[in-house]
Design a protein around this nucleic acid. Structure first.
Lengths: 348, 348
DNA sequence: AATAGTAGCGAGAACGTTATCGAAACCAGA
DNA sequence: TCTGGTTTCGATAACGTTCTCGCTACTATT
């Protein structure tokens, strides 16, 4: 098919030395004189030599590849995490293989099971919101395959995880709503069973309790803006309507804002909305969305770092890393100012 | 490190047959009886056998992997393209390796040059907007490495490309602005040198000419909303101000809308804005953005399909595929209605 | 009964690299 | 001159798989 590439043998032949010497020279190890080393390196460059990773991978078990298994990449959070993973990996000479599960547990198990362990050194995974059976991951752990979870992590398997501090973030969000004078607070929650859903819900509930407030409703559903929009209809159909919404993520909060605008309800003034992520859209939407910022890029880098450390020495202890979040205050939780029209109709 | 995996030899030994027979049985080829085949397959499953891709890759040249080289993934278009690539690849038993260049020509050449050709069967690339020297790609082509470009394609190298119809899309956008009654039209253009920048600019210019209109300004810069915002300041600083903006992409159009809003200029009513991409944000921003929809997902699938065909038979002819775009009319190019306030302050 | 053909299997080389071991060459000290 | 130590290098086996051959046994044909 493609032209034959130059191998270590070719170099050895043209130089009249053995392949062993060439191999040693390439890797800058012991037992090779400075002259021959330079000679080998020069002719290797001249002959446009590239190492064959299949061969090296065969003899030393270990490809320099890691697999990233993730529900999707078409949103701010995931794409930013991947960017962090990618950069850390490349800096440390690892290559990343990407697998999208499309939030399907079927695809996830299929990918994980069929993933030939001879083709990657380790796995970085973020589970789907359907995943209830973790046996496919358990098998990997029992086979001593390095594995770290990020963002959405299972509770039952014992391996390293890297997440943002979901609980504290939810507390910050709820505290902020209360401080702004909202008291009838509802929560647009994520899919049940996900650790992150539980953590954010718990932070919300605990903060309400601390202030002797009652929840004005919790609805579990998916992460899309359409989910948010739909759930708002249900929430506001009751007799006791909320005056503020804490959404499990920004996308659902966008749906909430869109719904409120359609209903002619003033966002901020009448109903406060706060999200979770700090998606760039939150700055663009009208009114701009207050939110809890997640360190997506750092989560990518950190989880990749932990994985590579696990790969490089199996004695590396299991980590449970939680990165801090931050409250970002924008217009959607402000009263008093008419942020809704946002100068849109003001003439020069 | 990790536990020793079961190999074809282990299966042969426990069954008392030769490795050759096992190998043939696994691949369902000739010269093996139905009984032994079943026997081999059963014990392979029982022993949890996984093929070692390093070994197969060594003997048959050909890993089932493709490399995707892309400037970034943290935006709608690129992440959607990747999703399409990924899905087509997985369906056809190829695995994708991801490389982000971060729009740096330095990183691009580094990645392409260091990419061991023994570890991938082909490349899918979208160049950075800095890339002026294409020798790193030229080398691959000369080495007969399958390579296809998508979206941002170089003109000088002769290989398959998959793009959207940028020229016609730009014509559609400009025609639409004119049809809506705008006549003083300016263009927020992309970085110079990119084919897509040239195509969209040309479509814009040709359509103006067709209607005997003059351009009210063309400014080249990057793709970010910040670029768009900045360029608007320049555009409106002249004595002859435009009454409509055609932006090379949606992100810059968002910047333009934000800038207009800050200036108290009514978007749509006073100044029309149209983008290019159909980023989901275009539905969320106020007013919603008219745009030219790109078939990002299909471009991903199609370019992956072309690449795999190139890999599978080297006689496959070079393709130049251009996928159609579509005009999406929203509020930012409508006059008459007060879309800017968008019911925001309307009480129930 | 002799031959030819075929189905099923095994032995061994090969892919490109690294690791182990030993050999050669050189040098220093006695 | 001999011994011992170091430095530098080569031969060879291994990694797990596929591929090419050749061998055996069986069936069909004459």
């Amino acid at each position: 098919m493609t032209k034959r590439l130059t191998t270590i043998k070719d170099i050895a032949k043209t130089l009249g030395i053995s392949v062993a010497t060439v191999s040693r020279a390439m890797r800058d190890t012991y037992d090779v004189s400075a002259e021959t080393r330079k000679l080998v390196l020069d002719t290797a460059a001249k002959m446009n030599y590239r190492p064959n990773f299949n061969a090296t991978g065969l003899v030393k078990s270990g490809t320099h590849k890691i697999a990233v298994i993730i529900p999707a990449i078409t949103n701010y959070y995931f794409s930013t995490v991947i960017t962090g993973i990618q950069e850390y990996a490349l800096e440390h000479n690892y290559q990343v293989m990407l697998y999208l599960t499309n939030d399907s547990a079927y695809w996830e198990t299929k990918v994980v099971r069929e993933l030939s362990l001879s083709s990657v050194d380790g796995l970085l995974a973020c589970i789907t919101y359907e995943t209830a059976d973790f046996s496919h991951f358990q098998e990997l752990i029992e086979a001593d395959v390095p594995l770290v979870f990020f963002d959405r992590v299972p509770e039952s398997v014992s391996t390293s995880v890297v997440v943002q501090d979901d609980y504290t973030g939810a507390c910050l969000a709820t505290e902020h709503l209360i401080a702004q004078g909202y008291s009838r607070i509802a929560h647009l929650a994520g899919p049940r069973g996900l650790n992150l859903t539980q953590q954010r819900l718990q932070g919300y509930l605990d903060t309400l309790k601390k202030h002797n407030l009652e929840s004005y409703g919790v609805i579990h559903s998916g992460f899309s803006d359409e989910n948010g929009r739909h759930d708002m209809g249900i929430l506001f159909n009751s007799t006791s309507k909320p005056d503020a919404i804490f959404s499990v993520n920004d996308r659902k909060a966008f749906g909430a804002i869109l719904w409120l605008r359609e209903q002619g309800i003033l966002v901020g003034e009448e109903v406060g909305v706060i999200g979770f992520t700090n998606d760039p859209i939150s700055k663009i939407i009208t009114p701009s969305l207050s939110t809890i910022a997640e360190p997506a890029y750092e989560i990518g880098r950190k989880s990749c770092e932990v994985l590579i450390k696990h790969i490089q020495k199996q004695s590396y202890p299991v980590q449970e890393i939680s990165l801090p979040t931050e409250l970002i205050i924008r217009a959607s939780t402000q009263r008093g100012a008419d942020f809704n029209t946002f100068n849109l109709s003001k003439k020069r």
